[in-house]
Design a protein around this nucleic acid. Structure first.
Length: 227
DNA sequence: GTCCAGGGCCTAC
DNA sequence: GTAGGCCATGGA
């Protein structure tokens, strides 16, 4: 079976097992972007608390964040960890959007995807994963989101084939899957759910007949179920 | 008390 | 180009 068929087969297995993941849970595109920054290296639960605090304080807009004082933003997002860093990141993105696109997400997302990706990557605090989350979940553009789960996932199913960098893996999915926003959306969410919420990579994972000792240990249950 | 979440930046080699 | 430290909460 070629990579294309395997990736699609795994996707349909995951979707059948877990159903749609309903990502991204946010009301506006700006909220998606704020959430993408706040969830960096923290659980969504903690990130969401921070998003809600910003919303209550009337800070969930580009203009409001750009004008707010650093401490005002930071204290609202304490639950998201690294709050000082993240306050700077939120303000940096807001300044970028104000200055380059007059605060308009419509304008931001009207350009070419790869060009926009490069532009986002220049903003301090937005790395590749966050940029792809913004493109996919806020901009509804077909940019596959990779991450540590995705790498481990490919490794577990023997599909990694020496790929090491983030872009290697992103390209692998994008070259072997149809250019489909819905597909990319669900696939990333399902990989995270499968790897985290279900398989958990913990010694007591109820789905793994073989103990999963650490993040790199093979999950035989997962393999047998999905391929 | 320990471990780890829907990362990214900076520095040193 | 990459390994390692830093950032510094909250739940299990």
């Amino acid at each position: 079976m070629n990579s294309k068929s395997i990736l699609l087969k795994i996707f349909h297995k995951l979707l059948g097992q877990y159903g749609t993941r309903q990502w991204w849970p946010a009301k506006t595109r700006f909220e998606v972007i704020v959430g993408a920054v706040l969830t960096q290296n923290v659980t969504w639960k903690n990130a969401k608390k921070a998003v809600d605090n910003l919303k209550k304080a009337g800070l969930l807009s580009c203009a409001a964040l750009a004008l707010a004082k650093h401490t005002e933003v930071a204290e609202k997002i304490i639950s998201s960890r690294y709050y000082n860093q993240k306050a700077k990141k939120l303000k940096a993105f807001s300044f970028f959007l104000m200055n380059s696109y007059a605060g308009s997400l419509n304008k931001l997302f009207s350009g070419k995807m790869e060009d926009l990706r490069e532009e986002l990557l220049k903003i301090k605090g937005i790395g590749k994963e966050t940029a792809d989350c913004i493109l996919l979940y806020a901009g509804h553009m077909p940019s596959f989101v990779s991450d540590a789960y995705t790498k481990r996932f490919l490794d577990r199913y023997g599909l990694l084939n020496g790929m090491t960098t983030y872009d290697d893996i992103r390209n692998f999915f994008m070259q072997n899957l149809p250019e489909d926003v819905y597909l990319y959306n669900e696939y990333h969410a399902l990989i995270v759910y499968h790897g985290h919420a279900v398989c958990q990579s913990k010694p007591d994972c109820p789905h793994c007949p073989v103990r999963v000792i650490d993040k790199t240990t093979y999950c035989r249950y997962a393999q047998s179920q999905l391929i």
